[in-house]
Write a protein that binds this DNA or RNA. Structure first.
Lengths: 297, 297
DNA sequence: AGACCGCTATCGGAAAATCCGATGACGGCA
DNA sequence: TGCCGTCATCGGATTTTCCGATAGCGGTCT
């Protein structure tokens, strides 16, 4: 999947025509046709349906090209970044964390930030757990907060300090029938409840998925939100439940717009600050030590 | 910037060696050297510092390769998506919106979702405004909620229905000195206040930026969060202020963890549901009409 | 100081990829 | 039936990428 193939396919999708796409790209029609053919072969399904009245994007092609467009957007953004990098320098600390963790850790981090991290611009990036490990390993972020998952050993070259352990709880609208139950709610009982999920293959979403797969069932997924705050807002509007770390729902519970219930079997997750074993500059190591101390229970 | 160039450069960064990277990539050392050279020429600055004890990534190279890695991750993800697309089909409606808008619209959307959008799986994607227009135009999402910005005319091929107008307000910790002021707060007065910003070049962030640039000043940026919920949590922890749409802070205000103040000159933004002028299938058009009616004031 | 080593950059040539122009196949229209 | 526009295919030309050989450099050892 070369950028050129993706660029050509996107042009075809946009122009609804190989010929017009070629004109727009200033290349021959056959070049476009051949590169798109290679892309379709690699994808394993047709991206386009060729009709006499024009090119239609297939349903699968549409999804594929959606992600493809982001890649091309990323390349354009990279060019912009390169331009920017010929200039300004500033002291930054880049921290990655999953959505929903802000509510747990940002209060501790920013409580006295001018004293603990003076003159440092913090860049907070939301990303799922898997990306955080990759980002760290490849030195794209300076530290990351992620779940300690038993299923995954800590990647080589990374060390972590446990910050806290949090309990996963069920959240629902206060008028939801499940809120009447006093005892922990069996996961098996939730199989028929429409549930709002986070991203299924990483972080919290994966933990929630495993609650169901551990008892040989599948959740009835109402919606998937890529952001845990969006997920909470969906639940709070009435239909659907969710399973999230308890501190993530503290505000909404206090406000009375969500109710939490414990689940059975109980499940907790450990959240840790990950960084590379190999130290950064002395200056940045000082920042990271301060960061860890501030965030710890 | 070709895919191969980026892959080779990332391998060099990881292995700290052109020779070892070449081995890992199963190509010759000279091929790696040449492609990385081309990439550095196109970027306009060196990505690596060659030292006898190994390859160091330059500061600028580090930032550049951070974004580059996401692109490669995107391509890998695209391969996964292609694999997935050879299988399952389900009825979905894909909606893009900026972070922070969930709090405004999700309650309305999910209030009676089983009746208004029966059997439909909603995929909610957070994305900045510019991406939403692109995503719509290229049919990657079915509808999008974004700011109507006077600076940008509606892109060709898109139509919109206004959903609501919201006021931009200043938010701060309840004990912040600014909360004592009874009158609207002049933007000029905020120049020396450390401010937490959203992404600067799109959506809310751009609107906030323009408040300052309109009076010939620049904000004192404490931190940049790519997610408005993270931004609110930062403000609520004490240091720093922010300017956000009033409904986005409703929960926190009710909870007493944030306080809002009006700003002068007052600024409002219109939020609309965008879709393509050219209709989708009759089935999906029905979903979109229902969606619009549910979300409108 | 000189020899040796490991690594990267460069170069000429070979191999592979991409592009092009020509043309066949196909469906729609008159 | 003939014509048109568009896409797929093909052989050849052009460009890009890779390779092996080698020069240059800095560090280490004698």
């Amino acid at each position: 999947m070369e950028f050129r193939q993706i660029r050509y396919a996107l042009a075809v999708a946009k122009q609804r025509s190989f010929t017009k796409a070629a004109e727009r790209l200033s290349i021959s029609q056959s070049a476009v046709s051949e590169q798109v053919k290679l892309l379709e072969e690699e994808a394993g399904f047709p991206l386009f349906r060729r009709t006499p009245r024009g090119i239609d994007v297939t349903e699968r092609g549409r999804t594929f090209l959606y992600e493809a467009e982001r890649i091309v957007g990323g390349v354009l953004s990279l060019s912009d970044t390169a331009r920017r990098l010929r200039g300004v320098h500033v002291d930054t600390l880049t921290i990655g964390m999953g959505s929903g963790m802000a509510q747990i850790f940002m209060p501790r981090l920013f409580k006295d930030v001018q004293r603990t991290l003076p003159g440092v611009r913090l860049e907070i990036l939301t990303a799922p757990t898997k990306n955080i490990f990759n980002d760290l390993h490849e030195e794209r972020i300076d530290a990351g907060i992620a779940l300690e998952s038993e299923a995954e050993r800590v990647p080589a070259g990374l060390v972590f300090d446990r910050l806290t352990v949090v309990e996963m709880v069920l959240v629902a609208h206060p008028k939801h029938p499940l809120t009447k139950m006093k005892q922990p709610i069996e996961v098996g009982r939730l199989v028929t409840e429409p549930i709002v999920m986070n991203e299924l293959t990483v972080g919290y979403g994966q933990v929630v998925m495993s609650l169901f797969t551990d008892i040989g069932t599948r959740p009835d997924i109402l919606s998937i939100a890529d952001n845990i705050d969006t997920l909470k807002v969906i639940v709070q509007s009435g239909k659907g439940i969710a399973i999230v770390p308890r501190p993530c729902a503290d505000n909404e519970v206090a406000l009375g717009v969500l109710k939490t219930m414990t689940i059975a079997p109980a499940r907790s997750v450990a959240l840790s600050l990950f960084r590379r074993r190999e130290p950064l500059s002395r200056r940045k190591e000082g920042f990271l030590t301060a960061l860890r101390d501030v965030l710890r229970d």
